[in-house]
Design a protein around this nucleic acid. Structure first.
Length: 106
DNA sequence: AAGGTGACTAACA
DNA sequence: ATGTTAGCCACCT
């Protein structure tokens, strides 16, 4: 099983209404410094994937997407649909990590 | 096989 | 407190 598959596996475990950071996922799969690869993994997800990629944000709770297959507006919309507060600040979408960051045991 | 790349981060200026 | 720079490491060409 390669790194990407582990990322998908962990991402799939994120409960609804919670978010996770790239670094956090990397740590969960025992490769703390590979946050970038996590992003790389999510980037190549097909539009019809079941993986809750929208629950993954960067270390400050910001949606890092600019204009890929999935627009950040789409991610923000999905998160709000799960009951997560998403605020638009300075052209970027943010979530409150203190409230929504998942601690892997909840 | 080797070097470039990135949905990241942390450290500096 | 904002803007840059430099590590990071698995994947892609």
């Amino acid at each position: 099983m390669n790194f990407l598959e582990r990322v998908y596996e962990e991402a799939g475990k994120i409960p609804k209404g919670k978010v996770l950071t790239y670094g956090q996922i990397a740590s969960l799969i025992s490769t703390p410094r590979a946050a970038r690869i996590v992003g790389f993994a999510l980037r190549q997800l097909p539009p019809d994937t079941k993986i809750p990629w929208q629950r993954v944000v960067n270390g400050r709770g910001m949606i890092s997407i600019e204009n890929m297959n999935f627009p950040k507006t789409e991610q923000a919309r999905r998160l709000q649909g799960e009951g997560i507060e998403v605020v638009l600040r300075d052209g970027n979408y943010w979530v409150d990590l203190k409230k929504y960051l998942w601690n892997a045991r909840d």
